[in-house]
Design a protein around this nucleic acid. Structure first.
Lengths: 153, 153
DNA sequence: TTTAATTGGTTTCAATATGCAACCAACTGA
DNA sequence: TCAGTTGGTTGCATATTGAAACCAATTAAA
């Protein structure tokens, strides 16, 4: 499990809230997007994001502290690289869901956007779908939140 | 498509970035979580989130402006309710991916958390999985980002 | 029916976070 | 060797946050 120093959770029993505490920030999400795309260096993130250096510096420090990035110092002790931990790589599904929602809801039909493809086929990555055990599509209404200490109704 | 007034996109061609611009904020994500759980009133959100009233007020206004919530005024013109638009309901997959990542990575084995179940079976909602067309699991390394104007390699 | 409490906010103000620009030491390339 | 480039840090002005007080309208309780 991740052991960030000194987080105090907004809602400790809710996994959505813990994740929002850890990565619910625009720059953090975009750094993870770029990391999943293979970027590793301070300057690569800076160029790609157009973020102020102090903010980038701060977010990289937070991500390392939160166990999402690993800082790999260069031999010369400078110009280190940042690589995703396994918890970081596991954010792939989350970033993909951001991407697919954006494609469906934040572009008009005549606007172009970048696309994530499977190079084996050249086809766009298929849509993530919430499914029940049976394989049927699952809607929010067909789910029930069970809080800690409650039994499933 | 969503038509929020006066957003200027951090990275207009990237769907991940547009989504991060629209919902990449802790309180916004938690309001959407609660909306998907059926909450509709200012006071319900306030109690559930423990957020300052001015911030809640601001985020609800942003969400309405961004086409994610619909504000439904009461007959008496006050105590309105907020309900998800279809773009808002479509955030279910995103919130589910936040939840599932948190369950996998932000809890130790001895910590309890709330759970989203399928009431038909009582079982937790199955994991979202990025799949290729073939049905095989898809890892980040097996994908390729194609920017606007580039052809798939 | 009068009074008390709740609801859905807005305003004020101090503290915190942001982003721009300047700066810097270490390294790299020409 | 000398001009960049890299990977930051610092200072400062501005924007955002959150706590608290306040308020009018509505609802509940006595």
């Amino acid at each position: 499990m991740l052991q960030p120093s000194g987080v105090d959770w907004t809602d400790p029993e809710c996994p959505v809230a813990r994740t929002a505490d850890l990565v619910g920030d625009k720059w953090i999400l975009l750094i993870i997007r770029d990391s999943l795309d293979g970027k590793r260096r301070f300057s690569e993130f800076e160029r790609s994001l157009g973020v102020a250096k102090n903010i980038l510096s701060d977010r990289l420090r937070l991500l390392v502290d939160r166990g999402i990035l690993l800082r790999i110092p260069n031999d010369r002790g400078t110009r280190s690289e940042y690589e995703l931990t396994s918890a970081g790589r596991d954010l792939f599904t989350l970033i993909l869901s951001l991407r697919q929602w954006g494609e469906r809801n934040a572009f008009s039909t005549d606007e172009a956007h970048s696309t994530l493809v499977d190079p084996a086929t050249g086809e766009p990555v298929p849509q993530l779908r919430p499914l029940r055990e049976s394989g049927a599509e699952l809607t929010p209404e067909q789910t029930q939140l069970v809080k800690v200490g409650e039994s499933t109704p």
